[in-house]
Nucleic acid binder design. Sequence first.
DNA 1: AGATTCCATTCACCTATGTTAATGGAATAA
DNA 2: TTATTCCATTAACATAGGTGAATGGAATCT
Lengths: 191, 191
Amino acid sequence: MKYPTLYQAFRKHIDLSPKAYLDLENRLIHKTLDKKEFLINEGQVIRYLPFIAKGLMVNYRLDGEGEKHVIQIRWAGLWLGDLYSFFSGAPTKFNIRAYQPTELLMINHETFDYITKKHPVYERFFRLSIQNAYIETLNQIFNLHSSSAEARYLELINNVPALLNDIPHYLIASYLSIKPQSLSRIRKKYK
Amino acid sequence: MKYPTLYQAFRKHIDLSPKAYLDLENRLIHKTLDKKEFLINEGQVIRYLPFIAKGLMVNYRLDGEGEKHVIQIRWAGLWLGDLYSFFSGAPTKFNIRAYQPTELLMINHETFDYITKKHPVYERFFRLSIQNAYIETLNQIFNLHSSSAEARYLELINNVPALLNDIPHYLIASYLSIKPQSLSRIRKKYK
DNA sequence: AGATTCCATTCACCTATGTTAATGGAATAA
DNA sequence: TTATTCCATTAACATAGGTGAATGGAATCT
């Protein structure tokens, strides 16, 4: 078993035999990204379901003025990507980029079809994954509605204290939906 | 066929024979809600997947101060509810309420299990539905990040002009994440 | 019908965050 | 190493949206 983190990620949601896991593990595509390297850009079709084995990735969209808006920040142990683009074949609207040296384990369509047919428990896993991703974004909307930027900042660094050292602050500001200057202003209050 | 709207909703995503559709239609639970009647409240477990045949429903969450935050507004032809609560059995954090006389067609667990086993195409439909709901919320987050309240208002009434007559303005304000006074201020500009 | 509650609107004032510009240090490139 | 770009921070000023209070009309209750 080369990637116990991945096995654990599955076991959190489904009852998966080591054998069924290894059947998948042997088919994974391993990909390494340097700091600031892109996994995918707006307009491309994503052909993989990527799991972050190590590192940190940021998912942002560009608005009409070309301004970046960070929608997701994801780290080791999590999936990311654009499920819609993967399943529908439509070009993505997202830009997904590593901000630390990152290792990905990726499932392509062929492997996805194979393992969900061979081990139906994986089908359940991916349905649960989408469901969880959906719930998480609903929470994110609720937070944007109900908490101030300051409160969102405090919650974020409380949950993921390492974040401030791992990515540029302007990306954290963008994720919080404020400008870097405002983030600085908030941070000053807590020094 | 009693509910062509529902059949159309399925046909938008999957290739469904009338026979397979009728097999479901006969098992639907029909529910009528009065104006302002709740479908479900925070803390309850939702036991159905509801489709809106007629009317209009609002989904909101309460924050720590007891303030309502409207997360979704949904109308005829759409599904709603809390997929997470339905599939996991966990109590919901949402309050779902009709704001017009509403008719729902609901699928319970027994029916869900039956039709997805009998007609696997339904399985695909529900995976696509979750996926679409997920994409929609990602868009909602992007809009909250990238557009002003004024721009979000203009987009909303452009997409759903009837909304202003169908629900109280304070709910629209909440959905836009502003106060009713601010909505009035914006509306004044466009008279 | 009359009383009551609810709701949209307006106004004056307030606050959080945006904007523009400047600075210096850190990271990167030559 | 030096030059250059990038980034976090600060400050002064600008603005979108919040707050609290008042008003009048619509809807609901008795």
